[in-house]
Design a protein around this nucleic acid. Structure first.
Lengths: 223, 223
DNA sequence: TAGATTGTTAATCGATTAACAATC
DNA sequence: TAGATTGTTAATCGATTAACAATC
């Protein structure tokens, strides 16, 4: 943890989305390997564990600025730190969540966010019945309180789990409070200002891929 | 609904994943337009609504086998049917869900699956305390009951929301009961036989993309 | 007919893969 | 040194974009 390779914080590196989406998978594996007491791992081993090709692993890991050692592989500890830095999974970033329905409540109770460096500091709802309670130990406030709490807690991510009808309105409230990224679990197509990042999570997209893949496989059993 | 264009059920069409992932977005928009009484829509209009380029829309829609009419655009009703057919969102496909924790419960209560042609017919859990109850009106059975209920209900998709430790074991049970697709919400890297489709949903992947995009945007404000 | 909009063909861009030289 | 494993450079593949002819 003391001697530490120069991280290529080369801010001009291009974001390659497929690589970024794989980084959390490497991270989980590396943390597991570390807990088993391992110090180094090769791209070949990582590839086997994650069902990838070794060259993909090497290309992806190069993107984190970390260097492997010929014959040894990659330092697990250094890689973990590099990946966490690149995708910002270290530290505690503050998020607000809006919409404490089924999905919103589940996310409030999701333990994994701690590992991802995300702290849901407060939750909000328009429904008077859901408000002024706690869900999974998180306080749920009326939406009107958003500006006051934002001024105090400085959230930078807004997690959106409200029904489609109110999604745009809630996003605008979040944006006007200085939130810089919207993680959208509603299926509403949202408009955000150019300086705000919108990340849509679409359950139906995954299901569509699954359905069509099953279809293809059953129709073309020889491959 | 009577006169209906020949659908190119050309089974040799290649699956283009980015296209497939966008199809549910077109579908939602088209259903909305239909409810507004519209009959035709142009690729330009669709592109505006979904923040895409018109050429992307035309290429994607061509993939559904549907033809647009020059000067008129696409028949909304026909397109809806074509898209639903391609991604198998018509009819009622049976799914089993395993793991009735926070996320599993939320999915059991998710109304949208009806629209996606997915019917969660039964839920399962290893925890004796969670079993023999109903969650959002779905029966929760002990995992041992899976084979019996599978023989009766013929599920073809298994939705996996169990903790990582038991994920592989549960998947194997599902596969041995004839399930052809696994929708994996756990973060476990699963092994499945070659004839079974695995679709991983990784929350951390979306969060990583969001985080890194916010970073980039704040560091490169001129674009 | 003129004009709007589609669908096709070719060009560009980006991601994956292959080949191999560099390194410990 | 020999051998394993990395990182680089070039080739391939697939998706997006551009240009434009076809169509109503």
């Amino acid at each position: 943890m003391d001697s530490f390779p120069e991280i290529a914080k080369n801010s001009e590196t291009i974001i390659r989305m497929p690589t970024v989406r794989r980084l959390p998978r490497y991270l989980r594996l590396l943390i597991e390997l570390k807990s088993e007491g391992k110090d180094f791992v090769s791209s070949e081993k990582i590839a086997q564990a994650l069902d990838l090709k070794p060259i993909v692993v090497r290309k992806d890991l190069a993107f984190t600025g970390n260097c492997g050692k010929p014959r040894l592989g990659y330092s697990i500890e250094h890689l973990i730190i590099s990946i966490e830095n690149v995708i910002n999974f270290r530290g505690k970033d503050t998020a607000f969540l809006a919409g404490v329905g089924n999905l919103g409540s589940a996310l409030l109770g999701y333990k994994g966010f701690e590992k991802y460096g995300l702290n849901i500091a407060a939750a909000f709802d328009l429904d008077k019945e859901k408000v002024n309670k706690t869900v999974h130990n998180k306080d749920v406030y009326p939406l009107e309180m958003l500006p006051v709490l934002a001024a105090r807690l400085h959230p930078y991510i807004g997690i959106l789990c409200v029904p489609e009808e109110s999604a745009q309105e809630v996003v605008e409230k979040m944006v006007s409070c200085g939130i810089k990224g919207i993680w959208n679990f509603s299926n509403k197509e949202l408009k955000v200002p150019a300086d705000v990042v919108l990340q849509n999570e679409d359950l139906a997209a995954g299901l569509a891929v699954l359905s069509i893949s099953i279809d293809k496989k059953s129709k073309a059993p020889v491959q």
